[in-house]
Every structure is written in structure tokens, then in C-alpha cells.
Design a protein around this nucleic acid. Structure first.
Lengths: 130, 130
DNA sequence: ATATTTTTTAGAATTATTCTAAATTTTTCA
DNA sequence: TGAAAAATTTAGAATAATTCTAAAAAATAT
């Protein structure tokens, strides 16, 4: 575990946002002004492979990095804002896994779920434009 | 609806695979030897925007295009093979929407679900390697 | 403490995708 | 129908995200 790697992990674990590689790079520059962008990519890949962080792929193809505390994402189809959604409180995740294990006969290790909605701000704007 | 557009739509609707833009381009060359890669990208974007096809973003960041008949995807975490999973037979999709509408208080328009498993072939190989 | 291995750095290279401007095709409607 | 307008296609240049390379630095093992 190098300085670079631990700072990158810390940045992701301390952020409430869903950072892109570029954004992680910019934040890491504040702590390590000499860090290379390639190092950020290396470590994001390594941390994703080891399961310490999670990569989420947005519908527009952009990659964001996230903590591993299990949760789902809800994306506004208009402005693309990402909101975290707990997948725990209601045990939905266990239900989903069970339903799909039954349907497929496979052992479901995990899943990624991205929900789509129109956020409050965009809904307001849409009403105005009618 | 141009020749190019309709051929691209046909390729995606007649394929059982999950084609990348490049793969769609190669298939379309068989029918239209002069088609430009940019035309393929233009039309994939247009068809996605109009809802005639669907773009799926794999965990490794690669984009694949798919028919719009609603279904989910199961990806092998070892070889990344994609398998279609019906989301209809068991009404799971309605249940998922309802559960998350209750949890978030939002109107859920839709969702993308990617399930992870280890496929039969990879499971066999893993056993051998122990 | 020295050798070996791993990681970092900086910049070049690659890949996927988008942009641009001219040519072509399609659509509009007089 | 046929000219004008609008939209699409083409080819290639441009861009952006990511990976690769080779040397330097840091970490780890002996």
C-alpha cells in the first residue's frame, strides 16, 4: 500500500459524490502535487480489482468510482444527476438475488442496479416549458 | 429513415449477441460496403435516443447495443460473457419498480440491472486450477 | 544493507467516439 | 414534377479517456 494508493482510496471513501478518474486525479493533486494521471488510473484499476472501490458505468458511458458500501443508483434521465439509494433497509437486495437465482438457476454473486427517474428540478423545468 | 439507419436497426434486432459499435460497423459493411463508421455512430446514437435500440454499458466500460425487448443481463465475472435474462415471466420488474418507488418516493421510469455470476465453463476451469 | 520486486512518473500511443465540411440524399411544397 | 430546403452521409481530422513504455524511485525481501 503506497502513499498514492492510500490517498486515492481515502478520496473515494471520503467523497459523497461519484468521482470520475479525472476528478480523483484533481483531488489527489492537492495532497500529492507530483502524482501522475497514469498512477491514478493504475490505482483505480487495482482498487477496483481488489474490491476496495467500485466502478460504476453510467448510461452515457462515463465511468465513476464509488465506495463499496452496497447501494444502488438513481439517475435523472434529463440532467444525469446521480443519487444514492440504499439497497439495505428493505432487504430488496436479498430479494432480487433470490428472484434471479430462481429464474436463472445460477449463483448470483452480486448485481448493479441503475434506476431512472426525473429529478425534482428537471420535473419543474419541464412543467414550465409546456 | 435512411437505408443506413434501417440496416443498422435490422442488424441489432436480428442479432442474438450484444454488438459493439465496431461490430455493427463490420456487419453493416456486408450490406453497404461504403458506409462510414461515423454514420454507424450517428445512427446508433439516434436510435438510442429514439428508444428503438438500447445501449448497455458493461462493467469494463465498453458499450454494447441491444434490442429493446425488456430484459436484464447476467455477466460472468471471469470471462465477461453476457447472457440475457428475462425480466418478465416472474413480474420481477414490476416488483423492483414498486419496491424502489416505495423506498425513494420517486417515480421510477425504468432501470438497468446487471447480474454477476461465474458461468459454467469458468467454474469448471477454476476447479481444475485448485 | 543490498538485491529484487513493485510502483511511480512522464509522455507517447492507442482506442473509442465526436466533429467538420463538403457531397449526397431525402423531403417539402409551389 | 422539379427546384429549394433540410437532413444525412462520407472521409478524415480532432478529441477525450485510457493504456502502454521505459526509466527512476520506492518498497520489500534476503
Amino acid at each position: 500500500m503506497t502513499k498514492q494508493k492510500s490517498i486515492i482510496l481515502e478520496i473515494i471513501n471520503n467523497s459523497c459524490e461519484h468521482l470520475t478518474a479525472e476528478a480523483v486525479y484533481e483531488k489527489s493533486l492537492e495532497k500529492l502535487p507530483k502524482i501522475a494521471l497514469a498512477t491514478v488510473y493504475n490505482n483505480l484499476n487495482a482498487l477496483t480489482a481488489s474490491g476496495d472501490i467500485k466502478r460504476i458505468n453510467m448510461p452515457d458511458g462515463s465511468a465513476h468510482y464509488d465506495k463499496t458500501i452496497p447501494h444502488d443508483h438513481m439517475v435523472c434521465t434529463v440532467c444525469h444527476k446521480i443519487t444514492d439509494v440504499s439497497s439495505y433497509g428493505n432487504y430488496t437486495d436479498k430479494k432480487i438475488k433470490k428472484a434471479y437465482e430462481k429464474a436463472t438457476g445460477e449463483n448470483i454473486i452480486g448485481y448493479d442496479l441503475i434506476l431512472y427517474h426525473v429529478c425534482g428540478d428537471c420535473a419543474k423545468k419541464q412543467i414550465k416549458n409546456i
